[in-house]
Write a protein that binds this DNA or RNA. Structure first.
Lengths: 332, 332
DNA sequence: TTGTACGCGTTATCAA
DNA sequence: TTGATAACGCGTACAA
């Protein structure tokens, strides 16, 4: 009690050699029943537990670890992603090691370094900062899968959402519904996600013959309060939009908050799923996809590369989105 | 490229001993500039990365790992809990290792075993099954903190929510609002959480002079569909309740779904916070607490025990709840 | 300033 | 069937 004994301790108590303990515990079957009983008794009495990393030390065998780097698990998106990765990965009896990168760019690098130092067999990363160089280097040393973004040279496997397609569909939908003044509540251009969704929005508008009225587009910082401010600014003018396309979860909720507070009607389409959207007081539509599926795909790509090696050409997958309607939105 | 080289590889390339590499990398300053340069060059060329668990192997030093056992990270509650634990723990440069227990009881044990095999320095566990015996044994071998539940003999540190108090307050509130027929949409008795919240509900009713009308109480399985069914059954009778107290997140949403579907009014109070409750079309009140705070407390208790040793008496903390009102609920 | 010997917990290999 | 020895990758202690 107090500390966990080693195999040597067990061996001493059972008056056998450590090898006999090892053989007994792994069920090699080449141990006499008498000694085996003594070993098992000693294990029980001492509360021995196997030491996995000492085992891994031997003959450079694998660590049995897979790393996951995200900014913030409290964000449901990352949490669901983690669940998906874990489901796939734990099926191969690999354990998930979490590296929180925080919001700053440097944290991402620190996190990945820390995981690599633990000799994870692979890494699932949601890149945030423009730290492509670092990841590009890392992916030559160990399997790396990027999620929601891909490296500039696409050297690492990646799983992304069809951000462009989903945004374009939503954008066109709003035009087809007859909205003349449509606002885009966008994201920082630092992220590929933000860029793609904005491109999709613009493409949708253009395809429907709308001029590039960039004045209506609002690009936001990561802040939630900022999203609220932009909504009020956007809606307070004389020619306020009749529809808003929000580029992510946070912005969608900000738009809904504006409707709830002002009481004015506003057609809202948002990117990212919201579990409780069906209970909202205002009808909304959402460009949805499964974060868990994203995680599963990432896990599968990672396993494939862990087995296949670093030399094979990188694979890139994209998962589709669905436009879902909640409340009375379907009838608009 | 391909695999990560060892210190020995670097030493060979730089034509020095491994010790010189080690000293150079740790910046001991006792290495000649010439050799140091050779070492650094070799490190760069080979892409050497430090191996943390080989370091830890030496003289049984610490693993730098902390384990977290939860059933399902996709559940926002667990995800926020994980964030809280990670925040505290990563401050001490400890990394978080996940052990997903799945929903079956056996998984919990497997997960904890797997983490212990990795020699985590401590374990944060959200117990699900009645596997107290196992955990009670484990907590004599390494620091264990249980969350939302405490072991039968209270041998391990624990952080819980004031389930009883929060439920009692909500229960009384409904009576004070004048509701005569109040239903409790409860949880399985297998969990301490479910038991406590039901006890609190009953206590609140009794304190207000209400007889123990157990007929109204519905105990649910873990199923979401089951919650919906029970809501419909509950509300379809001739003397349907005018208020429902839902024992958790899932049940609260089921109650809201009933209101959304039927259009009938119903006073709802639910346990657990819901991020978007303010946007719901029906007013509700929630017994809230911060899952992240729960995680932080757990992390702090764990650190304290890691430092203080297994012999000190176990500590138990409970965090308070707040009753919050959303929509028009405050005016009811 | 640099290198050698040893230990950490476990297992592969070979010897008894 | 059992045990002794070496090895894994690194750090500590000591010797050169």
């Amino acid at each position: 009690m107090g500390t966990i004994p080693t195999m040597r301790d067990v061996a001493q108590r059972a008056r056998v050699s450590p090898m006999t303990v090892s053989r007994t515990l792994r069920g090699e079957g080449t141990v006499g029943p008498e000694l085996a009983a003594r070993v098992l008794a000693a294990v029980e009495e001492l509360g021995y537990r196997h030491n996995d990393w000492a085992r891994g030390l031997k003959s450079g065998s694998s660590s049995g670890l897979v790393g996951l780097v995200v900014t913030n698990l409290a964000n449901p998106f990352y949490a669901e992603l983690a669940t998906g990765v874990d489901r796939v990965v734990s099926g191969e009896s690999l354990q998930l090691l979490f590296g929180s990168s925080g919001d700053d760019g440097g944290g991402e690098r620190r996190a990945a370094d820390g995981l690599a130092a633990r000799r994870v067999e692979g890494l699932v990363v949601v890149p945030t900062a423009d730290d492509d160089d670092f990841l590009a280097q890392l992916c030559h040393q160990l399997p790396v899968v990027t999620v929601t973004s891909r490296l500039a040279d696409a050297q690492a496997d990646s799983v992304t959402v069809d951000d462009f397609g989903g945004a374009r569909d939503a954008s066109r939908r709003l035009v087809l519904e007859g909205h003349e003044r449509i606002a885009f509540l966008g994201l920082s251009h630092a992220s590929r996600t933000g860029e793609e969704r904005e491109r999709g929005y613009l493409a949708g508008q253009e395809e429907c013959g709308r001029p590039r009225d960039r004045a209506r587009i609002v690009t936001l910082a990561a802040d939630e309060a900022e999203a609220d401010r932009q909504m009020w600014r956007l809606m307070s003018g004389p020619e306020a939009p009749t529809a808003v396309f929000a580029a992510n979860n946070r912005n969608t909720i900000a738009a809904c908050r504006w409707v709830a507070a002002s009481g004015d009607p506003l057609r809202i389409i948002g990117f990212d799923a919201i579990r409780t959207a069906g209970l909202f007081r205002m009808p909304i539509s959402l460009v949805e996809y499964s974060a868990e599926e994203l995680g599963e795909r990432a896990g599968e790509l990672l396993l494939r590369r862990i087995r296949g090696g670093l030399e094979e050409p990188p694979r890139h997958e994209a998962i589709a989105t669905q436009l879902a309607h909640y409340g009375a939105a379907g009838t608009l």
